[in-house]
Structures are given as structure tokens and as C-alpha cells.
Amino acid sequence: MTITRVSPGVVKVSREPMTLSERAYLPAVIGGMLRTIRHLARNLFNMKGLPTISYPEVKRVYSERFRGRHILTSREDGTTRCVACYMCSTACPAECITIEAGEDERTREKFPVRYDIDLLRCIFCGYCVDACPEDAIYMTRDYEMAIDTRARSVVGLRDLVVPPNFPVGPMGWRPYYGTMDKRGTAGGTGIGQPLREAPYEDDTVPNPDVYRGA
């Protein structure tokens, strides 16, 4: 294609007439085949440079901002940080969070009796994490949430709450404190980026029952 300037800020792209060899069809086809064969050869002799990965065995590293499945964090003493203030369910654009509040008779503290997230409704926008005033709900880097029945899409406290001092490794989207340092790695197609063999040791799913059925 040839490019000519029409007026300031506007260029015209015009089609080029085909040359004789292009019109003759065969040389062009051979040229095109050579181009694809070059790709094939390069990929055959340089398997490490392949942009694709063998997915279930090898997994791509996502950034520490990844918005995957949620977790509810715990305090040092093992109680859940959530105080059932309904902020996350108010902020949720998909209305996928259902909370029922209870009161601890000893400490008069509010806590969630029921905390359900419908993962089929959830759009993973991260608004619940932004809304939480208690650092209670985080998102993980876990994106493998396939289920075989609709009923299993609703995850409750049992699936969401993680023990205190849950490792940071699998954590994704979580509140940031003022300025946020480098929390992302643009892995891309992963050429030259570290790949990890699955499963990860620090990547244990809080409660695997939710996926396998309990």
C-alpha cells in the first residue's frame, strides 16, 4: 500500500496494483509458504521461544494484582476480620455477595454468620476489596474455578476464610496503602519469563473442597 498526504493530519492509503509475478499467483503462493515454513523451522529449532505453553502442566505467572477467587482473611487470634458491615455487598455491581450479621455475645463484636459469594454472578471487578474498611476480603491469583453444578458456584465462609498469616505468594488484588510499589509483572506470552510447574507449593487453595465437591 502507498501512503500519500491529503491534508495536514490526514493521509490516504491507496491500493497498489498487483505486479505480474503477484498476478501469476504461483510465485506469491510459494513466497507465502516460505514465510510460514520459516516460522515452522524457527519454532522447531527454538522450542524455548514458543509463545504457547502446555497449560495444565505449566502455568503462567500473573501479576500480584490479579483479580481471582476471593478469600476472607483472619486476625492473629484466628477470628475472621470481617465485621459484617455490608460495604462489599453494597459496592458489588453484580450483587453477588450475601451477608448475614451476628453478634459475639462476649465481645459485642459483629461478625458474619453467613457470607456467600456466587462465583457465577461475580464479575471479578475487585470493588469489594476496594470497599472493605477492615482488610478482610482479598482476591487471590487463583483462576481455576470450573465447577460441574450451579449449586457449587456459591461459596460460603467455610470456603472463603483462610487461616492467619496466609502466605502472600498466591495473593492477588488487595488494598494498597498510599503509593503502591511494583506489584505487577507483565508476563505476556511468557517468553523469557519465569513459568511455574503446577501445582505451586505456596499456591494451596484455601479449601479445595469447593472445587471437588464435599
Binding site: P51, S63, R65, F66, R67, W173, G188
Partner: peptide
């Protein structure tokens, strides 16, 4: 073939957005 050739840079663009936003 062109679809595969073009989707490699697209993957990089999407990964850039993922490193910013998480999705």
C-alpha cells in the same frame, strides 16, 4: 495463520493491562 501471528502481540497487550489492573 495470520490469526496466530497477530494474537501473540495482542496477548502482550492484554498482559500489560493485567499487570496494571489485575484482569
Amino acid at each position: 495463520t495470520n490469526f496466530w501471528y497477530l494474537f501473540q502481540p495482542r496477548e502482550e497487550i492484554i498482559a500489560l493491562a493485567e499487570s496494571c489492573s489485575g484482569a
